[in-house]
Design a protein around this nucleic acid. Structure first.
Lengths: 341, 341
DNA sequence: CTGAAAGCGCTTACAG
DNA sequence: CTGAAAGCGCTTACAG
C-alpha cells in the first residue's frame, strides 16, 4: 500500500511545500538541516521512491545508456561482449546511470533501423560493442546522441572508440618470445578477416623487424577464411619453435592440431594466445596470453560518453588500452638457446 | 538540430492541436486517416522522437524490466545468465519493453539493499536470475513490484519461478542410459550444494527406482564441497559403465580424470552431461547432454511478469520447462548388453 | 473528427 | 530558510 507516495504526500504530512521536500531529498541548499533530516526520515518511513521519469522529463535526460551488441556474432564473442556489458553496468551504476542492452538484429543492421531505445528517448547515449557495418556506422553519425565504440574501429573518422591495444599486446608478446630465444615464430590468423587480427599481426611483424628477423610467409598461418569461418589449421613444413595466435580459442585449436601431429607444448614448441578468455585455461598446459583490460576499457568508455553528454563536440578519436601478459605454461625458453648460449 | 521536436511542434506546423498528434501517432481513433498519414509523415520528416518519460509519468509505467544477477556467481555460471539476459532482452523487445541489468553485489545482498533501479522507479518489475539469499528473497517479497525468479527456487512460498526441469531431464537421461543396457550408473554431483543438483540427483534416483536398480552410495560421486568449490573427482573402486554428471563442466572434468586413469569414453564408459553449455562440445568425444530450453524459459518469464503487472495478485508458483536430450558421442550402448542379449 | 483543460511528479528560477 | 508559479511532453476524459 505504500505505492505512489509522492513528494507532495510527504509535504502534506509535514505541513511544508513540495519544493522543500525536493531540496531536502536532493541535499540542496535552502533547508535547515533539522528539517532535512526529518524529511528524509519521513520519506523512508512512508516508503517514498523517487520518480526518475519526472526528473527525466524536466532535464531531458534518461540516466540510461544503450549498449548495442550486433546479433550476428557467434557464441564465444558473444559472451565476451556480454561480460563487457556486465562491467559497463557496474561502472555506470557509479554514475547513477543504468544500461539497457539492445541486440541489433542483422535485419535492422541491414535496413539501418535505429534501436527503439533511441527513437523513444530511453537512453542518453550509446556504447556500441563490436563490429557493425559501415553504412550503419554512418547512419549512427547522423543522430543527435553521443556514441562511443568499444572494441571496434573503422577508417571512418569522427568516431570515438575505445580499443584493446592489439598491436602493442602482440608486439610485447613476440618480444617476450624472442627474449626467450625463439627465432622461428609463426603467427596464426587471417589478416584479412578483421582489423583486430590485422593489428595483432602488425605487432608481431614490428617485433620481427626490430629484431631483424625476416618475415616468413610460411609462418603466417590461416585460421579462418575472410568471412571469419574457421578452417583447419595446417602446420608449415618446417616447424616453428613458437606460435603467436591471434586469440586463445585459436591457440586451443592449434594445440589440438599440434598434439595430433605428435608435438608437445611447450617442450617441442611454445604457444601464445590473446584475450585471456576461458580457452586460456582449458588448454593443457594453460596458455601464456595477453589479458584484455576489459575493466579499464569499460571505465574509459563510460567516462567518454558522459563527458560527451555535457560537451557534445568533444572528440576522443581512438583510445588504446594496454593489456598485460599473463604468464602460464605454454611458453618456454627455446632449448637450443639454453644449451647453445 | 532536430533534437527536442515535440508533438506540439508538429501540431504548430500543421495547424492542429497536440491532442490530434498524440492520437495519430498512437494510431488511436478520432483522426481522419488522411490527417493521420500526413502527421506521421511530418513527424518523420521533422525527426520527431517519442518521449517515453512523459508517457511513463502519466501511466506510472517505465516500460523497463530489471534483470538482477547476483554478483558472486563465478565465470561459467555468469555467462550462462548473461545469455539468458540476452534472450530476455529480445523477448522484451517484442512487448516494447527494455531490460536493465543490475548486478547485485554481495554487499548489497548481505545488507538487503534494493537495486537503485527499484528505488528510482526505473523498472516495472524484476526478473531475478539465479540463487540469492533467503533473507534477500524475503525482503523482495515486501516490495510493491512484480517479481519472477528464473532458474532458482526455494521452499519459500508465494514465489513465482521459471525453472529447468532438472528432475525430469536427468530422469529421462538415466532412462536413456538404462535403455542402452547400462546398469552400473553413477551420478556425479554434491546433492547438498544446490537445489538444482539435488533435483537432478532425484531424477537419476527415480529412474533407478523405476528400473529396480539399487542406489549404490559409492556411485554418488562428489564434485564440489557444499559451498560449491570444485574438488577432485575420485573414481569409485568398482567402475560404473556410465556416469550422469550434474552439468557439462563437471562432465568435462570427469572425462579428464577418466583419461588420466586410462579409461576411454565411450568405449569403456559412457558420460552424460547437463546444460548443453560450451563444455559439451569441448570434450572429446562431444557430450550427450540435456539442453536447457533457455528461450522458452525467457519467453515464459517475461510473459509472467507482464501479466502480473496487470494483475498483481496472480500467482504462478513453480513452472518447469522441459529440456531435450542432445545426442552426441559420449554415450554408447553397454557392450556386455549388445553381446549378451 | 477535433481540441481546451487538467494532470502525471518533479525542478527551476524567483520572490519573500 | 521557505514556497507559489510555471513548465517538462505527453495522455485522458470530456465537450463540441
Amino acid at each position: 500500500m505504500k505505492s505512489h507516495v509522492t513528494m507532495r504526500d510527504i509535504a502534506d504530512r509535514l505541513g511544508v511545500s513540495s519544493v522543500t521536500i525536493s531540496k531536502a531529498l536532493n541535499d540542496k541548499e535552502g533547508v535547515s538541516s533539522e528539517l532535512k533530516e526529518k524529511i528524509k526520515l519521513v520519506a523512508a518511513e512512508m516508503g517514498y521512491r523517487f520518480n526518475t521519469h519526472a526528473k527525466s522529463m524536466k532535464e531531458g535526460l534518461s540516466y540510461n545508456l544503450g549498449i548495442v551488441i550486433p546479433e550476428r556474432f557467434a557464441g564465444t564473442v558473444h559472451s565476451f561482449y556480454l561480460q563487457f556489458y556486465q562491467l559497463l553496468s557496474k561502472v555506470m551504476d557509479g554514475y547513477h546511470y543504468s544500461g539497457i542492452l539492445h541486440m541489433l538484429s542483422e535485419e535492422d543492421e541491414e535496413r539501418l533501423v535505429l534501436p527503439r531505445i533511441y527513437t523513444e528517448r530511453k537512453v542518453d547515449g550509446f556504447i556500441i560493442l563490436g563490429q557493425i557495418s559501415k553504412s550503419y556506422v554512418e547512419h549512427l553519425q547522423t543522430i543527435d546522441c553521443p556514441i562511443v565504440f568499444l572494441d571496434f574501429y573503422t577508417d571512418q573518422n569522427e568516431i570515438d572508440s575505445v580499443l584493446t591495444d592489439n598491436f602493442f599486446g602482440v608486439y610485447e608478446m613476440t618480444n617476450y618470445l624472442i627474449r626467450n630465444g625463439h627465432q622461428k615464430i609463426a603467427f596464426v590468423g587471417n589478416v584479412h578477416a578483421t582489423s583486430s587480427i590485422q593489428d595483432r599481426f602488425l605487432g608481431y611483424y614490428k617485433s620481427l623487424l626490430e629484431h631483424k628477423i625476416e618475415l616468413n610467409q610460411d609462418y603466417v598461418i590461416k585460421d579462418r577464411d575472410e568471412a571469419g569461418r574457421y578452417i583447419d589449421i595446417v602446420l608449415p613444413d618446417e616447424m616453428p619453435t613458437a606460435f603467436v595466435c591471434n586469440n586463445d580459442e585459436i591457440a586451443y585449436n592449434l594445440m589440438t592440431v599440434l598434439q595430433n601431429n605428435g608435438y608437445k607444448v611447450p617442450e617441442d614448441c611454445s604457444v601464445a594466445g590473446f584475450d585471456n578468455s576461458i580457452f586460456a585455461t582449458l588448454t593443457n598446459p594453460p596458455l601464456t596470453t595477453v589479458e584484455v583490460d576489459t575493466e579499464e576499457m569499460s571505465r574509459v568508455a563510460v567516462k567518454f560518453i558522459l563527458e560527451k553528454l555535457n560537451n557534445p563536440d568533444k572528440k576522443y578519436g581512438r583510445t588504446f588500452i594496454k593489456g598485460d601478459i599473463i604468464h602460464r605454461e605454454s611458453v618456454q625458453p627455446y632449448k637450443g638457446h639454453k644449451k647453445g648460449s
